[in-house]
């Protein structure tokens, strides 16, 4: 505002928001700024889209599709103001986005640049993910072929690069895509049992017999555990899942949460203590005395009919399913 005063715009005068955001004549939320806006021109210039022959109109269309698909980074149903739209656009990796879109559209120069910059890192990432140079090169080549658009749908070549929206870096997207392919492949092949094994007498594991009726005390304990785990927050739930279900180390969990591993350790200790106290509190609330509660906490966990993995994974509302249903 002080800057506006310096340039001669007084508060009594109506301040055009385009003077601040660079977006002039921006329509209401949900609509793209007009192509002639200085912001879009500046973004187009900064992205280097012209190098790949991407005109301003095409660039604006890409931005529109990206913005609307993610509702400018806001909650679904929330209308984005002009400032929020401008902030969203400025937060995108526009250089990577234009390169990905230019590659997806088959621009030769874009592909040359992509190969020069990302080819070797792609191989290295694949090798690091698979832990094997052979498997890594195979995985990277497979993804590379897909990126080049060898697969077609409805007669149109489609490239996974079209799904890149510029929220993260293109290299990060490539790494994540490789990891997804590797995990999906691993999960798919793990479920396949060779027929030879069946012929050799490897019977499929019998289903667990239905557990008998648990004592009332153990039922109370199971109920308290479920109630306690349902109340913990998302980050704590993630910590429990990563540490106790996945068996990840503190060093692996820390970068995901962007905290130090010592912080993860402290949080875990605090979390376990809090869960224990909450369970005790719940059991006392059920009318048990302290001695009975202590004896109950010493019960063998295998006696409880509890699937912690199931509890942690189902108890929360499925936000992405809701989002996908929109």
């Amino acid at each position: 505002m002080a800057y506006l005063c310096c340039v001669g715009i007084t508060p009594s005068q109506p301040v055009e928001e385009s003077a601040v955001t660079g977006i002039d004549a921006v329509p209401e939320s949900g609509q793209l700024p007009v192509p002639s806006s200085p912001l879009l021109k500046e973004l187009w210039r900064e992205s280097g889209a012209a190098v790949y022959g991407l005109e301003q109109q095409e660039f604006n269309r890409i931005l529109e599709s990206v913005g609307t698909a993610q509702n400018y980074g806001l909650e679904p149903g929330t209308a984005a103001s002009r400032r929020q739209q401008a902030g969203f656009f400025r937060g995108l990796r526009l250089a990577d986005l234009t390169l990905a879109r230019a590659c997806a559209s088959g621009h030769e120069g874009a592909w040359e640049h992509f190969i020069a910059v990302y080819r070797q890192p792609l191989f290295r990432a694949a090798i690091a993910i698979t832990g094997s140079e052979t498997l890594g090169r195979e995985l990277a080549d497979q993804l590379y072929a897909e990126l080049y658009g060898l697969s077609a749908r409805d007669g149109v070549r489609r490239s996974p690069l079209d799904s890149y929206k510029g929220k993260g870096s293109l290299m990060g997207w490539l790494r994540t895509t490789l990891a997804q392919r590797h995990v999906d492949h691993h999960r798919r092949t793990r479920r396949e049992l060779p027929l030879d094994n069946l012929a050799e007498g490897h019977e499929p594991p019998a289903a667990d017999p239905k557990p008998g009726k648990l004592p009332a005390e153990l039922l109370l304990l199971a109920k308290a555990v479920v109630e306690t785990l349902e109340k913990i927050e998302t980050v704590e739930r993630f910590l429990l899942a990563a540490y106790y279900i996945d068996g990840r180390t503190l060093l692996e969990i820390a970068p995901v949460l962007h905290v130090h591993e010592a912080t993860v350790s402290r949080k875990l200790h605090r979390l376990v203590d809090g869960i224990r106290k909450q369970i005790v509190k719940s059991l006392l609330g059920y009318g048990l005395n302290k001695r009975a509660v202590q004896e109950m906490l010493g019960a063998d966990p295998r006696d409880l009919d509890l699937n912690l993995k199931k509890i942690l994974q189902i108890s929360l509302p499925d936000a992405f399913q809701e989002k996908a249903a929109l």
Binding site: A179, A242, F320
Partner: peptide
């Protein structure tokens, strides 16, 4: 989502490793 989805957790771990 990652709290419930071991697949996405695994993807994130592998991407971090790479």
């Amino acid at each position: 989502h990652m709290t419930r989805c071991s697949r996405c957790r695994q993807v994130i771990y592998l991407a971090q490793k790479a």
